[in-house]
Every structure is written in C-alpha cells, then in structure tokens.
C-alpha cells in the first residue's frame, strides 16, 4: 500500500513516515504542498495524508484539487491542530474522508488508515 504524506514539520513528518513504513506501508513524504500535489498527479497513491497549514499549497487545496480536478476518490485524511483551525466540517465538505486532530496518536492514525483501506486489524 502506498501512502503520500504532506506535513511541513520535520519531526512529525519523519516520525509519521517511519512509523507507517514500520507498519508495512510505502510512504512518500513532502514538506511542501506543491511538491506533494505534483507527486499525487504523477503517481498512484492508495491514500493521502495531509496537514492543513503548509507552505505552497494547503491540505484543503490538495483535497479540493484531488476531488474536483483529478476526479479521484482516493481516501484522504486531513491532520489538523484542533481549536485554532475549525476545519472539521470544511474538510468533510470538500471531500476528505477523515480528519485527525493533533496531537496525533499513532495507534489511532493506523486504525483510521486501515479502516479507509478496508484492512481488518
């Protein structure tokens, strides 16, 4: 299973990709929304995992682009810092499948990913 991860915080991005790779996923990770979107256009990912606030293009824009322009229904999980970004409803509106508030529990993330990929734990 191939996952793309867009997150601009180094420590979080590296931790998440290490964690997901340890769990058997193939992970491409980007710190810039624009690079991430280019990779999405070029490759076939099974799931998109994106932060909201990023330099270049935001996670919301990525989601919108994937749904409306590429017309793909690939599962999308949006990562948010709760409180400041009141984005839960917006995320669903534009077609995200899940949103996860930071701080992210690795176990919860894995369950959500598996659920979206219809993998039984």
């Amino acid at each position: 299973m191939r996952i793309i991860l867009a997150e601009d915080n180094d420590i979080l991005r590296k931790s998440l990709s290490f964690f997901l790779e340890s769990k058997g996923f193939e992970v491409d990770h980007f710190s810039d929304g624009k690079d991430a979107l280019e990779a999405i256009e070029k490759n076939n990912y099974d799931l998109i995992l994106t932060d909201i606030n990023m330099p270049g293009i935001s996670g919301m824009e990525i989601t919108q682009y994937v749904r409306e322009t590429i017309n793909s229904d690939v599962p999308i999980i949006i990562l948010t810092s709760s409180g400041v970004e009141q984005t839960e409803l917006d995320s669903f509106d534009i077609g995200a499948n899940e949103f996860i508030a930071k701080p992210i529990s690795p176990a919860v993330l894995l369950v959500r990913i598996n659920k979206l990929l219809k993998i039984k734990a």
Partner: peptide
C-alpha cells in the same frame, strides 16, 4: 503565528 504553529507539532511528539 507560523513558528508557533509549526513548533506545536514537534512538541506534541515529546508530549
């Protein structure tokens, strides 16, 4: 604003 936001994710990992 940007720095504070970005740092939060790092501090989260160390709880």
């Amino acid at each position: 604003k940007k720095l504070a936001h970005n740092m939060k994710s790092s501090l989260d990992i160390f709880m």
